[in-house]
Design a binder for these strands. Structure first.
Lengths: 127, 127
DNA sequence: GGCTAAATACGAATACGGTCGTATTTAGCC
DNA sequence: GGCTAAATACGACCGTATTCGTATTTAGCC
């Protein structure tokens, strides 16, 4: 059930829009742009264009039944995150997950985060 | 001692060469290319060019005292890995290290890797 | 039916990454 | 000193990412 085959790796701008869609759920270009433009000064047509490209790449699906198309993510956030991290593990950590985790945790990591990770590790026992 | 100022994020081709340099130590273009061309069909001048660009970006330093320049990494593998992972945590995991670790570990992660991670977590107690 | 507001579609400009061909420089050797 | 092999330097080309201006389409409203 895990891999339906190569989840396309989104670019940085694309990932920004995906993050919005995962948070908001399906939305129009207008709605997405409204959210994005809070933190960035990206033009409306830029967001539209990127969404169109993402549609070509099948990173998003869209409902064209209304005048304003409604966009939604094609892949889950989990799938995409897994894909991105796998990629990084391969290219920068020689394929070693533990080395990655080692680097991920540093002084700035809060005790709370560390605890969450501990619990995660513990939950692996029951397998 | 941690951050001497924003370590520049290497591109994919650059990371490939950095990986070689971290493994081999300082080397000439010829030596680097010899290693790279085992797994890839990259031309000599391509490797040279990328190294030159990396030099401009200060990703590598070079000793020009001999005819064949000797290249070496400017930043440690650890620094670079940290930089890359921080970037990914910010852009794809909403800043949450534990969420990243959660995604990093999956069915394909070996028991050995998991053990290494456990030990890492344990070693954090003594701090 | 035609006007208007708001949407999509299209295409050009810019920037960067990656590739490599060709020109130039360098240093040893006879 | 000049030839040659091997190095560096330069610059062009192609593909992709990002941006946005402008054209076109759409649908409601009077």
């Amino acid at each position: 059930m895990a891999h339906e085959h190569s989840v396309v790796k989104p670019t940085e701008a694309e990932l920004t829009l995906l993050n919005v869609l995962w948070k908001m759920g399906p939305a129009t270009v207008r709605q997405i742009h409204d959210v994005v433009s809070i933190t960035q000064k990206t033009g409306y047509t830029t967001v539209l264009k990127i969404l169109q490209i993402m549609h070509e790449k099948s990173l998003v699906i869209r409902d064209e039944s209304n005048r304003a198309h409604i966009y939604a993510t094609a892949n889950s956030q989990t799938q995409t995150q897994s894909s991105l991290i796998k990629d990084l593990i391969t290219k920068a950590f020689g394929g070693s997950t533990s080395k990655l985790v080692m680097r991920a945790i540093d002084d700035s990591t809060s005790d709370e985060e560390i605890n969450d990770i501990r619990q995660l590790l513990n939950s692996l026992d029951n397998k």
